[in-house]
Structures are given as structure tokens and as C-alpha cells.
Design a protein around this nucleic acid. Structure first.
Lengths: 257, 257
DNA sequence: GGAATAGATTCCATAAAGTGGAATTTTGAT
DNA sequence: ATCAAAATTCCACTTTATGGAATCTATTCC
């Protein structure tokens, strides 16, 4: 059989490839890279490397502590990972304030299809025991985290669909009885917040409150989490809860204009 | 006064700037960016954006789940932040193994002048309660972390200089009596490991063991840390300690060839 | 099945962008 | 001050990257 003529393939952009070679070389030197070292590692002429570093510095992809100091990876790189979106930008000041007020971890999450998605997270940079960054992470299991309980509570169709399946146990605290959970979710609707205490993972506790759009639909959840030994126990959590409920209410109010 | 003629300034590299504009646009779409959206945000022609995305995908700076799916930020970006160096690369398999064996956080640290510097850190991605990433962080306070106790124990000159100054208290567990600490450091030398238990921060515990070079100098410390409720208490920590001591001994052996 | 539409990829002439060796400037050590 | 090493800038010109148009791919509708 005669071979079929093939549509060509695209060339790549050499200077962008070189930029990343240089970034990779810079990353080898935690204390700061010298131009000469970078040129040696990349086998590029010094003048080329110098001009590229100037460009990368203007963009924020590399930085220097002072003029003459070594080159380090800059803030523009980590900024690419935080993945801002319009809702994330809008809610950020409230998340930061919650972190300032409590020293704990504040998150923003939405439903993506039938899965919970964390789209932003802030924590106290001075705290050595922190929570993993869930930003970009999907959770299909909705009965064991506080934001997902909110979505279950306020969306009867989702709740009915979800509770028709057996509830998986994660810890000794996990609620696996659907009718008991349904009763709890009724209270979530009345109270306007949801708690989780070591139902998903031992040592993890937190509270979430809903952000509503103009149609009274829950579009996102603000949450405040910490290691359980730092979070107020049940019965003493009114103040901690109120901070989150207030933040979410303010955001809702803001969205309504 | 007549103005001084000025040595010129370098132009920047347009295609690299455009590459970062495109990366920034991709980052706005957590679920994946379409070529048309990117072209609109950046005001660049679609053909230019298409070719740039091809390049960025080859580099690993963007990725797709499948052909035809949206573009997301890729692994090459976060790799730039981990800042590998030769010692970090060499020790990485051992750190990863420690994490597999225990589910806790393994770190590599060195002395940088009179300050402890964390140069690598690995933790269990499935664990939701983790420690903050200290990579690149300097600690000038040496009596309250396990790796820095090692450096104090094995460097008599450093120890004498450090213990001449008052020892700051961080928690109720902090040792502030220099002669008591000196006795503990003697044991560190004999045992070949050092522990810390809530001396720096409530809830934080861990153990460190030394990596020696061919001159019997401690060049780095391997550490294993966790939240105190997950770390074996004193008297039951022999196995946990042995994992770290063994790893450090193997690395030392490897360095001696 | 064909037609229409939208999204994405590739082509290619050429303008412009990026290059690298040499010249110049800056920095650090003595 | 001098010197050497590191870094930056210049500039002629080659090479690379460009963008509009052509082509390909995937989806939807009849």
C-alpha cells in the first residue's frame, strides 16, 4: 500500500527553549547563580545569557537580592502555580483576613461536575505545621469534607444522587449512615455552615460557609481548616465558625452588588 | 549641568516575554485553557499562540490530559522551584524512601555560615496534615531543631561560640540551660543522632542523623519530622530513629566510595 | 451520508528579531 | 592606584520567528 503524504509538524521556538534551559540552570544554585556558571551549564555565549537574564528579570521569572548578586528563580514562576481566576481574585482578601485572624488555613472551593474542587488556599507562613495545598485537587467523596457537605445540603438533587450510594468509611468518625447524614445536612441548611472533625483524616478539622449568587445558588464555599489540636472543640467553636460565616456573607453581599 | 552620556540598556527578548504572557493566560484556567481564549487574552494571533504552546508543551511548561483537551501549567514549572543541587540529587532517593517507610516529612539540611539551611524536603503527598516547606529557609537558632543540634554536637568551636550566648525560650519544652544542653550534645555525639520534641514549636517533633565527608566532618543532616501526635514518643522511638540513622550512614558510605 | 461551523494546526515569504564576537564597563582584590 | 575576572552592551547580519492564509480536525445538524 502506498504511504499517505503526511501533514508536516511545527518547529519549536528556539529562544523560548533556551530561556527554560537557563531557568533550569539558575535553579541548580539555591544561593544564586553566576552568569559564568549558567553559560557553562547551558553552553551558550555569555552575551546571549546576559540578555536572556535581563529579560527573565523584567518578567519576574528570575530575581536578584541586589545588583551584582547571584540570580535566583523569581516570583513569576510560583505565581503560575497559584492559578488565579476571577472568583479567586475576588475572594482572596477575605481568605487572607481569615488567616490573619486565626493563624489557620483558609480555602475556596467549588463543585466541578460531581466533584469538589479546591481553587485557592492561604495559610500562615510562620506556622510550621500546616495543611497540604489542595489547590487544583478534586475530591469525589462528598460526605467527609465541610465544603462538600454544604453543596450536598443546598443541592437536593445532588444529595439524593450521592446518598443513594454507600458511604465509604475513612476513620472511626466517618458517618456512613445515609439517614443520619441527611439529618445533619438539614441542620447545615438551617445553620448556614458545616463542620468536619476527623471524618476524612485523623487530626483534620474545619468549618465551611456558603457563597450564594443572585439566584440563591451556592456557587462556592469558604473554609477554615487546621490540625484538630489547634481547632476549637465542638461546643466552643462559635467564634471560629462566626468568622467564616461572616466572611462568606460579606462575599455574597458583594456579589449581589 | 550637562547631562552625562549614558551607556545603553539592553533590549529584551520578545518571544520569551510572549511565552510568559501565554503561561500567565493558561494559569487563569484551572480546568484547561483553549487556544482561542489564550489568543484573546494575550491579543496574539492564533498561529503564534499555537506554535508557542507546542514549544511550551515539549519543554513541559504546559501539558494536556489528552490531545484536544485544554492546556494546563505543566511539571517543568514546579520543578524550577524545588531547586536541585548535586547533594540534593544524591540524597533524594533516601529522603523519598524515608517518606515511604514512615509517611512523614524527610529533610536535608546544611550549615550556611552560622545558620542552619534546609536544602531539600519530601513528604507524603497523600497526607493532609503536613509540615511547611522549609527548603531555602535559614534558621539562626540552633538549640531547638534536631539537625542544628547535630552541628552543635560535632563542631566544638561552633558549640562554644553558640552556648556563650543566652538560649532563647520558644515553648515550655525549650532547654535554656547551657550546661544541660552541653550534656545532651555529648550524648548526641555518642549516639549519632539528635531529637527535638516541641522545643521550637508546640506539636513539632523529629530526629536527625549526620552525613560525614571523608574527613569525618558533618557536612549535612538527614531529618525526619512529623506532627507530635504521629511521631513515636520517647522510649518507643528506636525504630523511627534507626531509619534515619541507617539512611545517613548509607549516604556517608556512598560518599566515601 | 453531506454540509456547515468552530477550533486548531501548518505553510511559507520575509521582515524583524535574536545572535555572538568584540568592545566596553563594572566589580572585587591587592 | 592597578589588574584580572565577571558582566554588560554594541552592531552587522544571519537566522529565526512571524502572521495571514491555507489546510486539517472534530462536532453538530439535517
Amino acid at each position: 500500500m502506498e504511504s499517505i503524504p503526511r501533514y508536516g509538524t511545527m518547529s519549536t521556538i528556539q529562544s523560548v527553549e533556551r530561556a527554560f534551559q537557563i531557568l533550569h540552570a539558575v535553579a541548580q544554585f539555591p544561593s544564586g547563580a553566576q552568569l559564568g556558571d549558567i553559560a557553562e551549564i547551558t553552553s551558550l555565549p555569555k552575551s546571549t545569557v546576559s540578555r536572556m537574564l535581563t529579560t527573565l528579570e523584567e518578567i519576574g521569572a528570575v530575581e536578584r537580592d541586589n545588583p551584582g548578586a547571584g540570580h535566583k528563580i523569581g516570583p513569576a514562576i510560583s505565581d503560575l502555580i497559584t492559578r488565579p481566576s476571577w472568583l479567586v481574585s475576588l475572594v482572596e482578601p477575605w481568605l487572607k483576613k481569615l488567616v490573619e485572624q486565626t493563624g489557620e488555613t483558609a480555602t475556596l472551593s467549588v463543585m466541578d461536575g460531581d466533584r469538589l474542587l479546591y481553587i485557592d488556599q492561604h495559610s500562615d507562613p510562620n506556622s510550621n505545621i500546616q495543611l497540604r495545598d489542595w489547590t487544583g485537587t478534586h475530591f469525589p467523596t462528598l460526605h467527609v469534607t465541610s465544603p462538600s457537605k454544604l453543596f450536598l445540603a443546598f443541592d437536593p438533587i445532588l444529595q439524593k444522587r450521592y446518598l443513594a450510594k454507600p458511604l465509604e468509611r475513612f476513620t472511626e468518625n466517618t458517618e456512613t449512615d445515609a439517614s443520619k447524614l441527611a439529618i445533619y445536612l438539614d441542620q447545615v441548611c438551617k445553620n448556614g455552615y458545616a463542620w468536619v472533625r476527623e471524618e476524612f483524616e485523623r487530626g483534620l478539622a474545619g468549618v465551611s460557609a456558603p457563597i450564594f449568587d443572585q439566584n440563591q445558588t451556592v456557587i462556592a464555599a469558604v473554609s477554615l481548616y487546621g490540625p484538630v489540636f489547634r481547632v476549637p472543640p465542638a461546643g466552643e467553636d462559635a467564634e471560629f465558625t462566626a468568622l467564616v460565616v461572616t466572611a462568606a456573607a460579606e462575599i455574597t453581599s458583594h456579589l449581589r452588588g
